[in-house]
C-alpha cells in the first residue's frame, strides 16, 4: 500500500541435513515494505523454485503470532528486532533500503537443525509429556463454577499460559536454557487450585526431563524475557525455583 521497494541483501543459513555442515548463502531481493518477513522469504522461494533451485526450508503456519511454529534468528535476535512479536508478525517496513540481514536457525544442542532454518523442538513435547498437565480424565469433573478462582490469580495464570512454545527463549539464552518455557507451564498450573494437588510431582518431573534433554541452566540474564514474543515474565522462573525447592523439601516421593 505504501512506500518504495527495498533492496536487501540476505545472508541465509543453508544446511542440507542434521549431519552436514551448513553455511551462509547470499541472496539479493527487492521487496515491498508492506510484506511480512516470511512473505519476503516466500517470494524468494518462489523465485528459486521457478529457477529449479531448492527453496529455503523454514517453518511457519498461522502467521498471526499464536501457533509458535515460526522462529528465525534475524541479525542475532530470535524473532527479529521488534519486541513482543513472532517472526511472522515482523514487517519489512522495519528495515531500510540497502540493509544486510543475517538469517539463522535457532541454535541449541537440544534443538538440532533438520534442514536450513528448520529445527527439531520435540524436546518441548517431551517435557510436556512428563508433567505439563493436570491429571483429569474426560468426564466426571465438578461444575466449572464450583472452583472459585480470584480474578487476579486467573489473570496471572493466563499470563503464563500465553506461551506459544516457539522456543525463542532457548534460542535467546546464552545457555540455551528452557527455563522460561518450562516455568510458564509450571506456573500456569501451580497458581490454579486445580493444579495444586500434583504441583510437586509436576515440577520435579518436568525439570528432570528438561535437564536430561541437554538444555542449559538459567543464569538469570533475562534474555529470554526480552525476546519472548508473548512477554512471558521471568517471575515464572522464580516461581518454578520456589516450587522446585518446596517439592524437593516437602514431597514424600523419594523418586519421581
Amino acid at each position: 500500500m505504501s512506500g518504495k521497494h527495498l533492496n536487501l541483501k540476505l545472508k541465509i543459513w543453508r544446511q542440507s541435513g542434521p549431519q552436514t555442515a551448513g553455511s551462509f548463502v547470499d541472496y539479493q531481493i527487492e521487496v515491498s515494505p508492506d510484506d511480512s518477513f516470511l512473505e519476503m522469504l516466500d517470494e524468494l522461494n518462489n523465485k528459486l523454485e521457478s529457477e529449479g533451485k531448492e527453496p529455503i526450508a523454514f517453518e511457519s503456519d498461522c502467521r498471526e503470532g499464536i501457533c509458535g511454529t515460526c522462529g528465525l534468528v534475524i541479525n542475532g535476535q530470535p524473532h527479529g528486532p521488534i519486541p513482543k512479536i513472532a517472526t511472522c508478525q515482523l514487517h519489512m517496513r522495519n528495515f531500510n533500503n540497502g540493509d544486510t540481514i543475517w538469517i539463522e536457525p535457532f541454535r541449541a544442542k537440544a534443538f538440532p537443525v533438520l534442514k536450513d532454518l528448520i529445527v527439531d523442538r520435540s524436546g518441548f513435547d517431551e517435557i510436556m509429556n512428563a508433567g505439563g498437565f493436570i491429571s483429569v480424565n474426560t468426564g466426571g469433573v465438578p461444575d466449572a463454577n464450583d472452583i472459585l478462582i480470584p480474578k487476579e490469580v486467573a489473570s496471572e495464570s493466563m499470563d503464563a499460559a500465553a506461551c506459544i512454545g516457539c522456543g525463542a527463549c532457548v534460542a535467546a539464552c546464552k545457555n540455551a536454557s528452557a527455563m522460561l518455557f518450562v516455568s510458564a507451564k509450571v506456573s500456569q498450573f501451580a497458581l490454579l487450585p486445580q493444579g495444586k494437588p500434583e504441583r510437586f510431582r509436576r515440577v520435579e518431573k518436568m525439570v528432570k526431563v528438561m535437564d536430561d534433554l541437554g538444555f542449559g541452566s538459567c543464569t538469570n540474564t533475562y534474555a529470554c524475557e526480552a525476546e519472548c514474543p508473548k512477554g512471558i515474565s521471568i517471575r515464572n522462573i522464580a516461581r518454578m525455583n520456589r516450587e522446585y525447592f518446596l517439592a524437593k523439601v516437602k514431597s514424600k516421593e523419594l523418586e519421581v
Binding site: 483429569v136 469433573v141 465438578p142 466449572a144 463454577n145 480470584p150 480474578k151 486467573a154 490454579l192
Partner: peptide, 22 residues
C-alpha cells in the same frame, strides 16, 4: 456445558469475575 467443566478442570484459565466465578 460439560466442555466448560472439563476445560476448567484441565486448568484452562478462563476469564473470571472478582468473585471468582466465570
Amino acid at each position: 456445558n460439560n466442555i466448560i467443566d472439563q476445560c476448567v478442570a484441565q486448568g484452562v484459565p478462563f476469564a473470571r469475575e472478582y468473585g471468582g466465578l466465570l
